[in-house]
Design a protein around this nucleic acid. Structure first.
Lengths: 161, 161
DNA sequence: CCGATCGTTCAATCAATACTGAACGAAACG
DNA sequence: CGTTTCGTTCAGTATTGATTGAACGATCGG
């Protein structure tokens, strides 16, 4: 961290803030920022050192990112530490998170439409309206994911070939 | 609140939670939920009573929603209270919020590309890759907004004609 | 086997922020 | 005018959740 240019630490910190405003822990965002800048696998201990946070935080947050599919575990021969690296198309995973949340929203609207009296015309109209909106939005984003996924199918994203 | 069916309070509460996981105050979500279910303008005092929260909270959160364009102020003749009602196409405003956040993200990536040494091939590749992704995602959502906006252009969303 | 190193977990601390109650200024109404 | 009823603001409280340090079990190297 001591000899990293200002641009790097600035970007990493900015990713932390962006993560926060997305409802994620700041450290998760900083870890992601680290991997965007730096090549190859990194160990938990290395991340803790570079980002100046506790091993515990790195452990939990790296796990969060792995569960999201943003990071993936890998191994370095001759080293028993756990190594992580950026998954290919990692950004698509974040969109998938949006899609999932929209799914919950859609379900919630559906439930309300079902449970509310059918003669509450205004409520039913607004619910159906919003429901339609959410569903088209979700479909659009799903489409976008597919489009972007196949775009990078032929392209290599390997970090250490 | 005492004679509202379980379905209503359940939905409102669920909207509160959804708002929270979107980085918004819970009460803002509940207010939105209230307006989805109930017709017409409502006063701040009425909202405070219905949602069982302080006038202060209603005031600040209604303002938040108004600034987002989700609610709009209106007036009831002969009543000097401030009344609010749901804006037409209120859900589009939330998408616009996403677009805006993606804009900051895009700018941040751009700045990093500019400030980092050009010979950090890996970093530059990943930054450009992600940058392209964010921009197409943003364009897609913008397109979606336009499409949905014109869809409801001919439809009336007035609540009290 | 023994010591060292690793990742994880859990209780405790810390920070951020939502929410409230009280105080205030403005506007309506008599 | 004086009173009442608004909406807003602000200091204080409470709650949520992130971060940490210490303790633990597991695994490797010797």
């Amino acid at each position: 961290m001591s000899d990293t240019p200002q641009a790097v630490s600035g970007f990493i910190e900015r990713m932390g803030l962006a993560a926060q405003s997305d409802g994620m822990p700041r450290i998760a965002g900083r870890i992601l920022g680290y991997f965007i800048i730096h090549d190859g696998p990194a160990s938990l201990a290395g991340l803790a050192r570079e980002l100046q946070v506790s091993r515990a935080s790195v452990s939990t947050n790296a796990r969060i990112l792995r569960n999201l599919g943003v990071l993936e575990a890998t191994a370095v021969p001759g080293d028993r530490q756990d190594y992580y690296q950026l998954a290919q198309r990692h950004y698509l995973r974040l969109l998938e998170g949006y899609v999932e949340r929209m799914g919950t929203m859609s379900a919630s609207l559906e439930q309300a439409e079902r449970e509310l009296p059918a003669d509450w015309a205004g409520a039913q109209t607004r619910l159906a309206d919003m429901h339609h909106f959410i569903d088209t939005a979700r479909d659009t984003i799903r489409e976008l994911i597919e489009r972007l996924a196949e775009r990078s199918d032929g392209v290599s994203h390997e970090q250490k070939p």
